[in-house]
Simulated scan of single mutants.
Amino acid sequence: MIRYRLKELMAEHQFKTGARLTFDEIAKATAIHRTTLSKIANQRSYNTTTDNIDKLCDFFNCEVGEIMEHVKKID
């Protein structure tokens, strides 16, 4: 299963800058709809486009592995 780390990146940003980062701010900067950002952050196994991942990598100045990770399912 793919797990997105969007909430963690937002928390890291807040810790580093002292400023709260909202989905609205990310949406304005990346042109990713706020609803899509919410789904990436909150829905398990949400499937988004590589274009969105690319935009988030640019926004957070990070690599793909910092945005998402593979987690093995426990049966």
Rank of each mutant, 00 (worst) to 15 (best):
E25V: 03
S38N: 10
K55G: 01
R5K: 15
S45Q: 12
T36Q: 09
L37A: 05
I32D: 06
I26D: 03
K39G: 02
I67R: 07
Q14L: 04
K39D: 05
R44W: 05
H33C: 12
E66I: 05
S45C: 12
A31Y: 11
K73E: 15
T50L: 14
L6Y: 03
K28Y: 08
D54W: 13
K28A: 11
R20W: 00
R34L: 02
D58C: 09
C57I: 01
S45I: 08
I67G: 04
A41N: 07
A19I: 06
T30P: 09
K39Q: 10
V64S: 09
K7H: 06
Y46T: 10
M1W: 10
K72G: 14
T35H: 12
F60G: 01
E12I: 03
N47F: 12
F15T: 14
A19V: 04
V64H: 08
K28R: 09
C62E: 01
L56R: 02
D51H: 09
L6S: 01
N61Y: 00
T50Q: 13
T22G: 00
T22D: 00
H33V: 08
L37V: 02
R5T: 12
K16G: 06
N42L: 07
K72W: 14
C57W: 07
S45M: 13
E63C: 02
R5A: 11
S38H: 03
I74H: 15
D51W: 05
H13S: 13
E66F: 04
Y4N: 13
A11H: 13
I53V: 14
I32G: 06
E12G: 00
I32W: 08
S38W: 06
H13L: 04
H33W: 09
L21R: 00
T36D: 02
M68G: 05
A29I: 03
F23A: 00
Q14E: 15
K55N: 06
K72S: 15
N61D: 01
K16P: 06
G65F: 06
S38R: 02
R34T: 01
I74E: 15
T35W: 13
L56F: 03
F15G: 07
K39T: 05
I40H: 02
M10C: 06
K72H: 15
M10E: 10
K7Q: 07
Q14W: 09
A41L: 03
L6D: 01
N52S: 08
T30I: 05
N42M: 08
H70E: 15
D54R: 13
A29L: 03
A11G: 12
G65L: 06
I26V: 12
K16Y: 11
K7Y: 02
K39I: 04
T50D: 12
